[in-house]
Design a protein around this nucleic acid. Structure first.
Length: 384
DNA sequence: AAATAAGACAACCGCTCTGCT
DNA sequence: CAGCAGAGCGGTTGTCTTATT
C-alpha cells in the first residue's frame, strides 16, 4: 500500500519533551487549535513529528487531564472495566474522566497487574490462577469424582474452603468435573487459556440463550443437553446472561429481549452525546451486575456538561456495576464513602478503620493461595 | 557513599481503522 | 474500488527516580 512513514525522521527530535517544546505546542494549539498533526509541528516551530506532538498533547498537555495518584474509585473502576473489556485501554479511559489510555495502561501494568498477581489472580482473566494448581495431579485422584461431595474434597485439597468464594469453588469443581468427563485429553493449557469465569460462566450456564461469538473450546465441546447440566451453576438459574464484553461492546442486544438494558460502550457514548440519560439500571439477577442505583457516567471526550447519570442520587461517582460473587464478592465490609460529595473520599470498612485501595482490594478478593502453591515462582515465570 | 535493583511513567513503534479522493 | 493520509490504539522500550544492599 505504499504507506508513508508516520514522520520524516530527518532532523526530528525524539525522546523527552523539554518545557520549551511543551510551551510551543501549548501556545500553538491555544491559538490555532489542534488537528492536522502532520503540519502542526512545522507551523509551531517544533522539531518533532506530528505523531509525537499528538501523543504529547493527548497524554500530557491537554488541560483536562487529571494528574496525580489514582483514587480508589478509579482503581476499582479500572479493574472492573478491565475484567470486561480486557486491554481496551481507550475504552476504559473513556469511562475515567481526565485519565488517558496511556496513563491507565501504565498504571495497570505497574500497579494493579502486579498486585493481582501477588494475590494469585490472573490479571487477564481476573480469576484465581487455577493453573497454579496441578490439575492433572488432582484429577489423578479419581476418588474425587466418585461421590457428590467433590466440592468438599476440592476445597479440602486446596485448603482454602473457609476463604474462597463458594461460587468460585463450584466453578472450579465443575471445571474439574468436566475435564474428567472429557477424559482430560491433554488440552489443559487450552482450557486454562480460555477460562474466564466472567465470560465463561455465562456460556456455561446458558449456552443456548447466550451464543456468544467467542465461544471457546470448552463451551463448544459441550453438548448443551448433557454438559450444561454438569456445568450449570445452580445458584443462578434465571438464564439471564452476565454483563460481559459482548454486552458492553457489541451490538447484539436483540439477543436479550428482556431485562437487559441497552447498555454498551458505543451506545453509551451515543446516549451521552445526545444528552439522554441512562435508564435506571437495577440488578436483574442475584449477581447484581448492574450495580447500585448511584451511578454517574462521564466521558472525558465530551464536555464536562455531559455528565451521564442514572436515576440514582447525585454526586458520588461510582463504578457502574459490581462484581457478582462468581469471582470477586464485594464483602460485607465493603467500604462506604464517608463523604460522597468529596473528590477525596475516605473509605472505612465495617470496623471503622480506613481502607487503602490495596487493603480494600485484599478484602474484595478474599481468598488465599495455599502454601503448596509457590506464587513467587509463578511471578518469576511471569516476568520472564 | 556508591552500586545496583526496582518502580514509575513518558514516549516510541508498528499496526489498524477510517475517511477522503 | 484502490490508494493514501490522518488518527487512534495497544504493546513495548527508554529514562528517570527511589529504594535497597
Amino acid at each position: 500500500m505504499g504507506r508513508a512513514p508516520c514522520c520524516d525522521k530527518n532532523g526530528l527530535k525524539k525522546g523527552p519533551w523539554t518545557p520549551e517544546e511543551d510551551q510551543k505546542l501549548i501556545d500553538y494549539i491555544q491559538k490555532h487549535g489542534y488537528g492536522n498533526w502532520r503540519t502542526l509541528p512545522k507551523n509551531a516551530g517544533l522539531q518533532r513529528c506530528g505523531k509525537s506532538c499528538r501523543l504529547r498533547w493527548t497524554n500530557y498537555l491537554r488541560p483536562d487531564i487529571k494528574r496525580g495518584r489514582f483514587s480508589f474509585e478509579e482503581e476499582e473502576t479500572i479493574i472492573q472495566l478491565h475484567s470486561i473489556l480486557g486491554n481496551k485501554w481507550s475504552a476504559i479511559a473513556a469511562r475515567l474522566p481526565g485519565r488517558t489510555d496511556n496513563e491507565i495502561k501504565n498504571y495497570w501494568n505497574t500497579h494493579i497487574r502486579k498486585r493481582l498477581l501477588r494475590m494469585g489472580i490472573d490479571p487477564v482473566t481476573h480469576s484465581p490462577r487455577l493453573d497454579l494448581l496441578d490439575l492433572s495431579s488432582i484429577l489423578s485422584n479419581s476418588s474425587l469424582y466418585n461421590n457428590t461431595s467433590s466440592q468438599m474434597d476440592m476445597s479440602r485439597l486446596l485448603g482454602f474452603q473457609p476463604l474462597v468464594n463458594p461460587e468460585l469453588l463450584k466453578l472450579a469443581t465443575s471445571l474439574l468435573s468436566n475435564q474428567h468427563q472429557n477424559n482430560f485429553q491433554g488440552n489443559d493449557n487450552q482450557m486454562q487459556n480460555n477460562y474466564n469465569p466472567m465470560l465463561q460462566t455465562t456460556q456455561i450456564q446458558a449456552p443456548i440463550q447466550n451464543p456468544l461469538p467467542n465461544c471457546t473450546t470448552m463451551t463448544n465441546t459441550a453438548t448443551p443437553t448433557t454438559d450444561t447440566a454438569t456445568l450449570t451453576d445452580t445458584s443462578n438459574q434465571t438464564g439471564v446472561p452476565f454483563f460481559d464484553e459482548a454486552q458492553l461492546m457489541g451490538p447484539s442486544f436483540e439477543q436479550y429481549p428482556t431485562n437487559i438494558p441497552n447498555f454498551d460502550a458505543q451506545n453509551l457514548d451515543h446516549l451521552q452525546s445526545n444528552g439522554l440519560s441512562m435508564p435506571n439500571i437495577q440488578p436483574t439477577n442475584a449477581f447484581g451486575y448492574y450495580g447500585t442505583s448511584h451511578q454517574t457516567f462521564m466521558d472525558p471526550s465530551l464536555s464536562s456538561n455531559h455528565t451521564f447519570q442514572s436515576n440514582g442520587s447525585e454526586g458520588h461517582h461510582q463504578s457502574f456495576f459490581n462484581y457478582g460473587p462468581s469471582v470477586m464478592s464485594t464483602p460485607s465490609s465493603s467500604p462506604t464513602p464517608l463523604n460522597s460529595s468529596s473528590n477525596s473520599t475516605t473509605y472505612v470498612n465495617s470496623s471503622g478503620t480506613e481502607n487503602s485501595p490495596e487493603s480494600y482490594c485484599n478484602e474484595m478478593m478474599k481468598f488465599e493461595i495455599p502454601d503448596i502453591l509457590d506464587v513467587n515462582q509463578f511471578l518469576l515465570a511471569q516476568s520472564n
